[in-house]
């Protein structure tokens, strides 16, 4: 009789454990949908803002009246939005269980948006000098050197970003914008194209490209960055 009771307990406990465990999985699945929607909405909004800026820039160029006072705040806004999107993508992407493919797709859209922004800055610099300096940062996933490089860039930008204008030879730099891209991402050929254009090897990542022409492969420390920017 007691043995039967015990067996009954083992079975009912197993059922209860499966129900509780499954409920955790179900909530995770529901939240995964919510996570992808959330990031997708942010990306769509970013894309729209980038597109709007692009059109604005072309329009101002066409009428021959490039007004940096109009463009600069727009660049600042897009840059901040991109940073926020990257953080959300990273935060929710790592928590995702069931939507890995969708997050991969969102990642691709995000990288493309960053590259598009990189191009926008290139055009912006033609008319508005060097108020914004892009740092294109190629990293490797699950690589401690890349992690460290990321933290150093974060801190460097935080320290020398706002309203700092400094000299590097005859060039002026200011308001740093870091654009982080997974250098091993192989689902979009544009990443390989950029790496090849700058003659970068995937095996030597992380790598950074400062202001379109200063290229560094491997880990770049805080002191080296300060030397590059002549701080």
């Amino acid at each position: 009789m007691k043995e039967q009771y015990i067996r009954h307990i083992f079975i009912t406990s197993l059922i209860a454990a499966i129900v509780i465990f499954t409920s955790g999985i179900m909530i995770g699945w529901v939240l995964d949908n919510y996570r992808t929607d959330e990031v997708l909405n942010i990306i769509k909004n970013n894309e729209l803002n980038s597109e709007s800026y692009n059109i604005e820039q072309i329009f101002l160029e066409n009428i021959g009246d490039t007004d940096c006072e109009i463009l600069t705040p727009r660049i600042k806004m897009i840059s901040e939005e991109l940073g926020d999107t990257g953080r959300e993508l990273q935060r929710y992407g790592s928590a995702s269980d069931f939507k890995k493919d969708e997050f991969d797709y969102l990642k691709r859209r995000y990288f493309l948006m960053e590259i598009k922004f990189y191009n926008l800055i290139y055009n912006y610099q033609k008319s508005c000098k060097d108020e914004y300096t892009p740092i294109l940062y190629f990293y490797k996933i699950d690589d401690s050197t890349s992690e460290m490089q990321g933290y150093i860039l974060d801190e460097f930008v935080k320290k020398y970003n706002e309203d700092t204008v400094f000299e590097n030879g005859d060039k002026k730099h200011g308001k740093l914008v870091v654009l982080s891209i997974d250098g091993e991402y192989d689902k979009d050929p544009i990443i390989d194209t950029i790496l090849n254009a700058y003659d970068l090897d995937k095996d030597n990542l992380p790598a950074i490209i400062i202001n379109f022409d200063i290229i560094r492969e491997g880990f770049v420390g805080k002191d080296e960055l300060e030397t590059i920017f002549n701080i």
């Binding site: 996570r35 935060r91 269980d97 150093i152 935080k158």
Partner: peptide, 26 residues
């Protein structure tokens, strides 16, 4: 290495972000 202030390590996130970051399976 990166010389970050300890206070900057505290990532203040919203309730919504917290909820979406939790791994409910575990």
């Amino acid at each position: 290495i990166a010389d970050t202030s300890i206070f900057d390590l505290i990532d203040i996130i919203t309730m919504k972000q917290t909820l979406l970051t939790i791994n409910f399976k575990i």
